[in-house]
């Protein structure tokens, strides 16, 4: 008896109703016409586009070219890295904002001593709308030139960015938060 016969016999024993449905029902789903013929090209196009992006602006190549912080900044401002950078910037500005409102500028570890990981994440998450680009500009975290590059990002929708940021915030440990701040 082959595997398929075994599976059918097992199902017949467990549930004659489901076995009957399986025998009588066809495939409930379908795809657009020619979908599978075009899928390899779609995937390869996407891979080439992403590889081209990395090849043009990956940190290793950029570092070789001018070896400075500017190269890393350029790399970070590319679409795939921009969301991560945005979170780091938001956290940095959030930290600066916290220090200011508390009337002092202690070192980051001291300032965070009374803030739990959950509170920090919650704060940034709840106040994310407060950290506009203007505030980042004011805090000298980014330059006007950087902002124009961020605003030009074509491939990341607001919803995608929100989800990505939520995921990043959830994945951050307290140590990582402290490091960012």
């Amino acid at each position: 008896m082959n595997e398929k016969d075994k599976i059918r016999e097992e199902l017949e024993g467990l549930s004659p109703l489901l076995s009957k449905i399986k025998e009588e029902s066809g495939h409930p789903f379908r795809t657009p016409e020619g979908y599978f013929q075009g899928l390899p090209d779609d995937v390869l196009r996407r891979i080439r586009a992403e590889e081209g992006l990395v090849r043009r602006s990956g940190p290793a190549q950029l570092k070789e070219r001018d070896g400075g912080i500017g190269a890393w900044l350029q790399w970070l401002l590319m679409p795939r890295q921009a969301a991560g950078l945005a979170l780091a910037l938001l956290l940095a500005v959030g930290g600066a904002y916290l220090f200011r409102t508390q009337g002092g500028a202690p070192g980051a570890p001291d300032a965070l001593a009374g803030i739990s990981e959950e509170e920090a994440k919650e704060y940034v998450s709840e106040n994310i709308g407060e950290f506009g680009l203007e505030l980042m500009l004011e805090a000298s975290v980014v330059s006007a030139e950087d902002i124009s590059e961020i605003e030009m990002l074509p491939e990341i929708g607001q919803e995608d960015l929100d989800i990505y940021l939520e995921d990043l915030i959830e994945d951050l440990s307290l140590e990582e938060l402290e490091e960012l701040l």
């Binding site: 789903f29 599978f36 899928l39 390899p40 995937v43 996407r46 992403e50």
Partner: peptide, 28 residues
């Protein structure tokens, strides 16, 4: 393998557009 994997994904996510996104991510 694309068809087998597509149908596996499609049964999990149900909608074609979602399955298309997931299978592309998968093959990348």
């Amino acid at each position: 393998y694309q068809e087998r994997l597509y149908w596996h994904i499609r049964r999990l996510v149900c909608e074609h557009e979602d399955a298309n996104d997931v299978i592309q991510d998968c093959f990348v």
